[in-house]
Amino acid sequence: MSITSTLTPIRPIRVEGRSRLAVVGVTVVAALAVWALLAPIAGIHLDAQQGSRIQVGVGSVFFASAAMAFAGWGLLAVMERRTLNARKAWTVVAVIACLTSLGSPLSSGIGVGAKLGLASLHLVVGAAVIVGLRRTALSASERC
């Protein structure tokens, strides 16, 4: 009599409710909400000087926040395939990228209100992406 094993290798399974697409949506909604509070409601002109004068509008906020969320998602997916402890490494890279991104609004914003408003948009998008995508990543022990 021989015993055969029908066990299949266990692959990491994402926890339900940890949807990366939902993180993208929440990021965009949060950025648009902050923009709505700053520009139309508070009346702050979110203008920047980058070669020419740029007024940051709803379309710019929508596309930039979605692009950053998808970029974070892509980087996390690549790091999950290439490194053992992707969650920790990705978080460090994402925090550094978020802090580095503050240089642009603080240096090119026109006026104190615009500088602080644009910096707050960067921080909201960064926080939503970092916290949201970090929760979707499997830890090193969950992946092994």
Rank of each mutant, 00 (worst) to 15 (best):
S2A: 15
I3K: 06
I3E: 12
I3H: 14
S5C: 11
S5D: 15
T6K: 12
T6A: 14
L7C: 05
L7I: 11
T8G: 09
T8P: 05
T8C: 02
P12S: 11
P12K: 09
I13D: 13
I13P: 01
R14F: 09
E16C: 02
E16H: 12
G17T: 10
R18E: 07
S19G: 12
R20Q: 14
A22S: 07
A22H: 01
G25I: 01
V26G: 11
V26W: 09
T27H: 04
V28D: 01
V29F: 08
A30Q: 02
A30V: 03
L32S: 06
L32I: 08
A33V: 12
A33L: 08
V34Q: 10
A36T: 05
L37Y: 02
L38R: 05
A39F: 08
P40Q: 03
P40D: 03
I41L: 13
I41F: 07
A42C: 08
G43N: 09
I44H: 14
I44Y: 13
H45W: 09
D47G: 08
D47N: 14
Q49C: 01
Q49I: 07
G51A: 05
S52F: 08
S52G: 06
R53E: 14
Q55F: 14
Q55K: 10
Q55R: 15
Q55S: 15
V56A: 02
G57R: 07
V58K: 05
V58R: 07
V58T: 13
G59F: 10
F62R: 07
A64R: 03
A67S: 11
A67D: 06
A67K: 07
M68F: 11
M68Y: 10
A69T: 01
A69L: 00
F70T: 08
A71F: 07
A71H: 02
L75R: 06
L76M: 14
L76F: 12
A77W: 15
V78K: 02
V78L: 07
M79R: 03
E80L: 09
R81Q: 15
R82D: 04
R82F: 10
R82S: 09
T83P: 00
A86P: 06
R87K: 12
R87G: 02
R87C: 03
T91N: 09
V92H: 04
V92I: 15
V92R: 00
V93T: 06
A94L: 12
V95Y: 10
V95A: 13
I96D: 05
I96L: 15
A97I: 00
L99E: 00
T100Q: 11
L102S: 06
L102N: 01
G103D: 13
G103K: 08
S104E: 11
S104N: 12
P105N: 03
S107I: 15
G111Y: 04
V112S: 14
G113L: 06
A114P: 01
K115A: 03
K115D: 02
L116R: 11
G117E: 05
G117M: 03
L121P: 10
H122L: 06
H122F: 14
L123K: 02
V124S: 04
V125K: 01
V125D: 05
G126H: 04
A127Q: 00
A128R: 00
A128G: 01
V129P: 03
V131W: 10
G132F: 04
L133P: 03
R134L: 02
R134D: 09
R135H: 10
A137Q: 13
L138R: 15
S139R: 07
A140Y: 14
E142D: 04
E142F: 00
R143F: 05
C144A: 13
